[in-house]
Simulated assay, not measured.
Amino acid sequence: MDCDTNFKLTMSIKKESDGVPVFFKVDGNRFKKERTVKLMVDTRYRVDFSFKPTQTMTGAIICGEEVETTERVYDSTASAYSSRLHTEGALPSPKGHRDDLPFVVLMKGGLVMQMSLQVKFYKSGDSQHCDWGSTFHCIEYDCETHTDAGIVAILKETVR
Score class of each variant (00 low, 15 high):
2 D>R: 04
4 D>Y: 05
5 T>L: 14
6 N>T: 07
7 F>W: 05
12 S>A: 11
13 I>F: 03
15 K>T: 05
16 E>Q: 14
17 S>V: 09
21 P>Q: 12
25 K>D: 15
25 K>M: 12
27 D>G: 15
28 G>W: 08
31 F>P: 13
34 E>P: 11
37 V>Q: 07
37 V>L: 14
38 K>P: 09
39 L>G: 08
42 D>V: 05
42 D>P: 07
43 T>R: 03
44 R>G: 12
45 Y>K: 09
47 V>S: 09
48 D>Y: 04
49 F>R: 00
52 K>G: 08
53 P>A: 08
54 T>W: 01
54 T>N: 10
55 Q>F: 01
56 T>W: 02
57 M>W: 00
57 M>T: 00
58 T>D: 13
63 C>Y: 02
63 C>R: 02
64 G>H: 00
66 E>H: 12
66 E>A: 14
68 E>L: 10
68 E>D: 13
70 T>K: 11
73 V>N: 09
73 V>F: 02
75 D>I: 06
76 S>D: 12
76 S>V: 06
78 A>T: 12
79 S>C: 11
79 S>A: 15
84 R>N: 09
85 L>A: 08
85 L>R: 00
86 H>T: 03
90 A>D: 06
91 L>R: 11
94 P>L: 05
95 K>D: 13
96 G>Q: 11
97 H>M: 03
98 R>C: 13
100 D>W: 01
102 P>N: 05
106 L>H: 00
106 L>D: 00
109 G>H: 08
110 G>N: 04
112 V>T: 13
113 M>Y: 08
113 M>P: 14
116 S>L: 01
117 L>W: 03
118 Q>G: 13
120 K>V: 07
120 K>H: 13
121 F>G: 11
124 S>D: 11
124 S>V: 02
129 H>I: 01
129 H>D: 15
129 H>S: 14
131 D>Q: 14
133 G>F: 05
133 G>A: 07
135 T>D: 07
137 H>P: 03
140 E>P: 06
141 Y>C: 11
141 Y>H: 12
143 C>D: 05
148 D>M: 07
148 D>H: 05
149 A>T: 08
150 G>I: 04
150 G>S: 06
150 G>K: 03
151 I>S: 05
152 V>Y: 04
154 I>E: 02
158 T>H: 05
160 R>N: 15
